[in-house]
Design a protein around this nucleic acid. Structure first.
Lengths: 206, 206
DNA sequence: GCAAAAGTGTTATCCCTACACCCATGA
DNA sequence: TCATGGGTGTAGGGATAACACTTTTGC
C-alpha cells in the first residue's frame, strides 16, 4: 500500500477494482507474483504498473494467509508499503485499473478483502518507525524547511510539537544540513532550506 | 526458528536435514503449508512435529522469496520465530528429523539455504524488542528471581547491567510481582521469587 | 568465619519540556 | 504598518547512571 502526506493529512492510495471479487470496491494496488520474480521486485512492478510511481521507499509489512481472506480461492499476500514524497503525487493517467485516488486515513471507505485491517497495521508500523528511524524523510522532497518537516511529524504523531524543541532535537541528530538557500513562501520571513545528509537512507537512530 | 537462553547464552535450535537439498546440513525446523492451513497454525504444527515444543511465544519475522534461495525450485518462506522458556528445553526424542540440537549464536555452523542470514535478522529483531516490549519474560519459567531476569537482559543486550538500577527499572514498570516465596540456590542469601502479572502477554511499553 | 550472591538509597548528570519575544517578508 | 510564519535560549523537572555496604545462607 502507498502512503503520502497530502492536504496536511496522512493519505492512502487506493485503486478501484475492475474485476471480481469485490468489483468496484477500493483496494490496494497489487497483483500476483511471477514465477522466478523476487517479492520486492514484484511489489515495485505492480506499483509502477498501476500508479506510475517508482523509486519509492518500500518496506515489507507482513504476510497474510488466512484461508478465508479471499472468498474464491486461497491467497497469501506478502504486503509491502511505500511512501511517496509530497512533490511526487502525480499518478499515471489512465492506468489499467479503472480508477485511482488518495484517501485520508481518517475517512477510508470500506475496502476489499481484509485491506482495512492491513491498513491499521501499516499505520501502526509507520508511526512506530517515526520514533526510532529516519523514515519521515521519505515523505519529503529533496529539500524542505524545518516547518515542513515538523508538520510531517505532527501529522503522523497526531499532536502539535513545540517549534524550538523540535528544531533542537532534529538538528542535534545531525541528519540534515542547510543547503544555504532560503525559501520565500508567503508574506513572512523566508525559511532556511535543508536537505538530508544521507538521502534515501533510512537509519535506525534509537 | 527457535531461540532460548541456555548455558548463559542465546541459543538457536537446529535440525539436521535428512533429505536433499543440503542433506546433513543444519537448518531451522519448518516445512510446507497445507492447503487451507493458516500460516501461524502451520508454523506451530511444524514446530511441534519436529521438536515436540508447543504453546510457545511465536511471531512472524519476515517473508523471503528470492528465486535462487533454494537450489532446486522456487520456495517462498514465511518465517516465524519462537522463544522457549529455560525450563522447557527438553526436545522430543527421536523426531522424524534425524537430529536436533541447540547452538550458541556465537558459534553457529554453516546452515542450509539462507538460514544464516535469516538468523541475523531474527537476532536483531529480538534485541530490538527487548527495549520496547516485555518479550524477555517469554524466556522465563513461570517464576524467577530478579537476578535470573537480569541475566536474560544482559545476555541479549550483551552488556552488564547495574543490579540496583535494573531492579528499580523493572519494578517501576509494575509488570512483575513477588510470589512471597524465596529460592535457595547455593551458599548465599536466598532470592525473592517473582512472576509476571500478565503471563503470556507481550506488551509494548515504549 | 568465609565465600558468594541478594538486597538496598543517594547523588549527579543528562535529556526533555515548557515557555515568549524579535525578525523578515508581502500586501 | 500590519499580519504571518521563521528564528532563537533558558530554566525546571524527571529520568537515567554511577556508586558501596550489609544480609543471609552453605560449607
Amino acid at each position: 500500500m502507498v502512503f503520502t502526506i497530502r492536504d496536511q493529512q496522512l493519505q492512502l492510495l487506493l485503486i478501484r477494482r475492475g474485476i471480481p471479487p469485490h468489483e468496484g470496491c477500493w483496494a490496494f494496488p497489487g497483483g500476483f507474483l511471477n514465477i522466478d520474480e523476487d517479492l520486492e521486485i514484484c511489489a515495485k512492478r505492480e506499483l509502477e504498473e498501476e500508479t506510475g510511481l517508482r523509486d519509492l521507499y518500500l518496506e515489507q509489512l507482513y504476510t497474510f494467509g488466512r484461508p478465508d481472506r479471499d472468498p474464491r480461492e486461497r491467497i497469501i499476500s506478502v504486503t509491502y508499503y511505500a511512501l511517496v514524497p509530497s512533490n511526487r503525487l502525480e499518478l499515471k493517467a489512465a492506468s489499467d485499473a479503472t480508477d485511482a485516488a488518495w484517501f485520508s486515513l481518517d475517512e477510508l471507505p470500506q475496502l476489499a478483502f481484509d485491506h482495512n485491517k492491513i491498513t491499521t497495521l501499516a499505520h501502526q508500523r509507520l508511526v512506530a518507525k517515526l520514533y526510532y528511524s529516519t523514515i519521515a524523510f521519505q515523505f519529503m522532497p529533496e529539500t524542505f524547511t524545518l516547518s515542513e518537516l515538523q508538520s510531517v511529524y505532527e501529522i503522523l504523531r497526531n499532536e502539535k510539537l513545540d517549534r524550538r524543541n523540535f528544531r533542537k532535537w532534529i538538528l542535534a541528530q545531525n541528519l540534515i544540513e542547510e543547503t544555504g538557500e532560503k525559501r520565500r513562501n508567503g508574506n513572512h520571513r523566508p525559511a532556511k532550506v535543508y536537505r538530508p545528509r544521507n538521502p534515501d537512507q533510512v537509519e535506525i537512530v534509537c
